Simulated scan of single mutants.
Amino acid sequence: MTLHVNNADASNQGKTHPRNNQWRDGYNHYGKISRTLHWLTAVLVILQFSIVLAWRGTGKNTITLFLDSIGPHGSLGLLILAVTLVRLYWTWLNRKQRPPKAPGLGGKVAHLVHISFYALLLFLPAFALLRQYGEGYEIRLYGMTILPEAERHIAWMVAPADLLHSPLSWLLAGLMIGHIAMALIHRFWFKDNILARMAG
């Protein structure tokens, strides 16, 4: 008896092909959802730093009040935390079909930097929101109450942000500048497709 095997089936045996779905990640690119979440995070973080630096540099004026109306510090922090949680969940869902990590020391450093990004994007807003609640203020998102104010001062909620929020914020800023610089180096110096994976 002769066993007939379809050529297409035979060629697919033992191989794992990236999905054609543009919304999901693939082995050579990040999907539309990953790219949207990435650039949304970038916009929120840059806006957060821009408002803080504007207030520190110029104080209260028409521009800083306008920026603050667009992105209140607490509301932006809450949005950054929410988007980061969604990114982590989406990363886990796509963990078996994402672009592979670069080999060698450079790949290990890049992986460590990305882990640091996620950790900072989680802990920075979480510490700040804990401090806000622990100091007796309600948690609000653009005027909408998310969590009513605490009845008393809660020291253990306030302490982590008092100790770590400012230095970790500047660490995040440094990593972000380095991240942008390396993306541009890959694009214009190495001329590889690293940036294209996330830029589409």
Rank of each mutant, 00 (worst) to 15 (best):
R56L: 13
R140F: 05
Q132P: 03
A54Y: 11
I146M: 14
L147T: 03
L175C: 02
G104N: 07
L120R: 09
W90G: 09
R35V: 03
Q22W: 09
D192G: 07
L130G: 12
L175K: 08
S116R: 04
L164F: 15
W39A: 04
L112M: 12
T41C: 04
K108Y: 01
G104L: 11
F117Y: 04
G200F: 12
F123N: 03
K191F: 04
A183G: 08
L78V: 08
G107C: 03
L40M: 05
A54C: 10
W39D: 10
L195C: 13
L195S: 13
H38S: 02
A161N: 15
L105D: 08
A161L: 02
A161E: 10
L121R: 01
M198H: 03
L78C: 08
H73D: 08
H17I: 10
L141P: 01
L121S: 05
P167T: 05
R187T: 01
W170Y: 15
Y133K: 13
A54P: 06
F123T: 10
V43N: 00
F188Q: 01
I115Y: 02
L120S: 01
T91E: 02
F190Q: 08
H186A: 02
L163A: 14
Y142L: 08
N193W: 00
I33A: 01
S116I: 00
Y27M: 11
P103W: 03
N28C: 06
L122P: 01
A161G: 12
F123C: 11
G174M: 08
A173E: 00
T62F: 14
R24Y: 06
D162M: 11
H17N: 08
N7H: 14
A181Q: 08
Q48T: 07
L172A: 13
T58V: 13
A8Y: 02
I80G: 09
M144Q: 14
L93H: 04
G26N: 06
S69R: 09
L195A: 12
G31D: 11
G77C: 12
I194E: 08
